[in-house]
Every structure is written in structure tokens, then in C-alpha cells.
Simulated scan of single mutants.
Amino acid sequence: MSGIIELEGVRKTYRSGSIEFEALRGIDTTIAEGEYVAVIGPSGSGKSTLMNILGCLDTPSEGRYLLAGEDVSQMGEAQLAEVRNRRIGFVFQQFNLLAMLPAWRNVELPLVYAGVPRAERRERAVAALGRVGLADRIDNRPGELSGGQQQRVAVARALVTEPAMILADEPTGNLDSQSTTDVLALLDELHAAGRTIVLITHEHEVAARASRNLVIRDGAITSDEPVGALA
């Protein structure tokens, strides 16, 4: 398997006047194509900063980040936006759905930004909703869906561009226990089908669904092991 994500000596330092804070302290790791990896750590550990860099929402202060063979470490904002839209499917704790749009219109939004023709956008959005078990809900607005169904719409939106990886940031944080089970089962299915998934979480039970855990604390990876090895 080839590396979808390669991080080499990644550091992130924030500066405010004369004060410096090093949020990441030399991250080295590779995530292979088709892996399901959970990044786990407490609040303030650096996992959110790492998520922002993995998602091309921020860039390292030092080091290199290769995503699907592209060095995104030194890209400008316009280039990063293109990479985000082409190569990364995002699923957030907040569903970030537009309340006035039906499910399929929410799912097609990344394709709108990519300039895909209207007819193809609808076809691909409907197909993505079918993949997450919502073929009968394509015309429902978010307010007409349960929390778990809204998160499935968000997953469909993440899938619609056929990205190199799915980056899920605390995707079950706003869900009840049954919806959490449903969404994690969906991520399991996507992984089984060969999709690369990176899951950011502070919950050990959620991280246990991945095949590998990266434990981060004080801006550094303290453990990088298959899930079974952490039991």
C-alpha cells in the first residue's frame, strides 16, 4: 500500500507578540492508502492542530506534509482550497448542513465549487446518498432528519468528490448512542470498501473502531500502534 499521508518533522508554532506556543513538536508518521487511523488525545494535546494540517486548513511552521504524493506544506491558500476540494472529504462534529436545502443539494455543494455540470452533480449526489443508506431521503431538508441521518448526509457530501481520504473530526460528538453506533458502522463499511479514513477523537471507545491509533499528547505522538496492541 502506498502512503496517502506522509508527515516529516511537522511542527506548528503560534506566535502572539513575544509569546510562542509550540502546538506540534515534530510529528513523523505515514498513513497508507486504505488505512483506518484514529488520532486520539485529550483537549490541548495538539490533535486539533494536527487535524487542521491534515485537512489543509493550516500549514506547518516546519517540516513536510505530502498528501497523495503532493507536497502541500508550502502551498498558498488558493492551492490549498483546491486540494481540500479534490482530495479530502470532511465530516465534522457540527453537521454544517444548509437548513433550506434538501439533502441532495447539500451533498452536491463540493461539486458546485469544482465546476461539475448540474445534471452530473445531481446524479452523483443521489448516488452518494444511496451509498449511506438515504436513497429515500434525498429531498428531505436537514430539519426533517434525525441527527444520525444528518451526519449520514455529511458523510455522503464527503464522499461525493471521491477524495483520497475521509477526515472525520469528532463525528459522533453531537449524536445519541444509537446514532453514534450507526455512523461508526458506516465508517466501518467505508473502510471495508477500501476508503482511507482518519478519525479525530478524544473517546477511546470510538478510537477502538479504527485499525490503528495515533496517541498524541503535548504536541507529540506518544504511541502509534495497531488497536489490538493497545488493549
Rank of each mutant, 00 (worst) to 15 (best):
E108S: 09
Q151P: 14
R137I: 02
E205W: 14
L109D: 07
G9M: 05
R64Q: 09
L97E: 14
V183N: 07
S16T: 13
L97M: 12
C56E: 13
V83N: 01
R64D: 01
N174P: 11
G9W: 06
A156P: 12
G26F: 01
G76H: 03
Q79M: 02
V227E: 11
A207E: 13
N52T: 02
I4K: 04
L167I: 06
V116H: 10
S45E: 12
V155G: 14
G143P: 03
Y113Q: 06
V39D: 14
I31K: 14
A210Y: 09
T59Q: 11
V37I: 05
N85G: 01
A127M: 08
R121A: 02
K47Y: 00
G173S: 08
E22M: 05
H204W: 13
S179A: 04
R195P: 09
S146Q: 07
I138Q: 15
R11P: 11
E162W: 05
G69T: 00
H202N: 02
L145V: 02
G143C: 13
N140K: 11
E120Q: 02
E82C: 09
A103H: 01
D136E: 12
S48P: 02
R157D: 10
R25E: 04
G69M: 08
I200M: 12
E203N: 10
T30E: 15
G9V: 00
S179E: 10
R87P: 05
L214C: 06
P163V: 00
L111A: 06
L50M: 02
E62C: 00
Q149H: 10
S177C: 11
R195E: 14
A158H: 07
G143R: 10
Q150K: 12
Q93G: 14
G63R: 00
R122D: 05
A229V: 13
A81C: 07
A208S: 05
D28S: 03
S179Q: 06
A68D: 11
L187D: 01
D182S: 15
G173T: 07
A220R: 15
E6Y: 04
C56L: 10
I27L: 09
Q149T: 12
T172C: 09
M75S: 08
I19D: 12
V206D: 10
I19K: 15
I221H: 13
T13D: 13
H191Y: 01
S146T: 05
E8N: 11
N52I: 03
A32M: 14
L187E: 08
P60I: 00
G147C: 09
E162Q: 15
R157T: 00
D169A: 08
V72S: 07
N85H: 09
T181F: 15
G173F: 09
S73L: 00
V112R: 12
L66I: 05
D58E: 13
C56N: 01
T161L: 03
E82P: 12
A192N: 09
A135R: 11
G41L: 03
G89R: 06
Y65Q: 09
V37F: 04
L187Q: 03
V112I: 04
A156M: 03
W104E: 10
V155F: 08
S61D: 08
R195Q: 11
D28P: 03
L109V: 01
